[in-house]
Amino acid sequence: MFGVLWGLILAAVLVSPALAEEKVDCSNAMTQLEMTTCANLDWQQADEELNAAYKAAMAKMRETDEFLPEDQRGAAETLREAQRAWIPYRDKACDAYGFQARGGTMEPMLVYGCRAQLTEQRTKELEELTEGLGN
């Protein structure tokens, strides 16, 4: 019986954030749960935009590599390595930012907000790179 009850509790906890996202009016978030949910949604949206910008920049870097002499190529690999280094930087920097409210209900909101902000900045950098390569 205890196992079934624990399973139901765990299922409710895992489903709750998904349900909360559907019901939250982020233009008027009032509770900490609503503000955290909206910060998470902002980060998810920023991450989608980042992925699109990275894809466009990577395509331009590959195109650049095609036009360069073989001994000067490496644009795409350099961007890939930079992005792979940037992601853990963003995550750890934002985890550190969350320590302003360590253990409190605001901590996840601070982390998500930081991730959204840094992700938006990185998206702009990638867009500028793409434009500089002749988009």
Rank of each mutant, 00 (worst) to 15 (best):
F2E: 14
F2C: 05
L5N: 05
G7H: 12
G7A: 14
I9P: 00
A11F: 11
A12N: 11
V13F: 10
S16C: 04
P17A: 09
A18E: 11
L19K: 05
A20K: 07
C26P: 12
N28L: 06
A29L: 09
M30N: 11
Q32A: 08
E34F: 06
M35H: 07
T36I: 12
T37M: 10
T37H: 04
C38Q: 05
C38E: 08
A46P: 14
A46G: 02
E49L: 03
L50N: 10
A52W: 00
K55D: 12
A57D: 05
A59M: 07
K60L: 08
K60Q: 15
M61S: 14
R62V: 09
R62D: 13
T64K: 03
T64G: 00
E66F: 00
F67M: 07
L68F: 01
E70R: 09
D71I: 03
Q72K: 04
Q72Y: 10
E77L: 11
E77D: 13
T78Q: 15
L79K: 14
L79C: 13
L79P: 00
E81T: 08
A82F: 00
R90M: 12
R90E: 15
G98N: 03
G98H: 02
Q100K: 06
M106K: 05
V111I: 12
V111A: 03
G113E: 04
G113K: 03
A116F: 01
Q117W: 03
Q117I: 00
Q117M: 04
T119G: 10
E120H: 01
Q121G: 03
R122C: 10
T123A: 04
E127S: 04
E128Q: 12
G132R: 08
L133Q: 09
N135P: 03
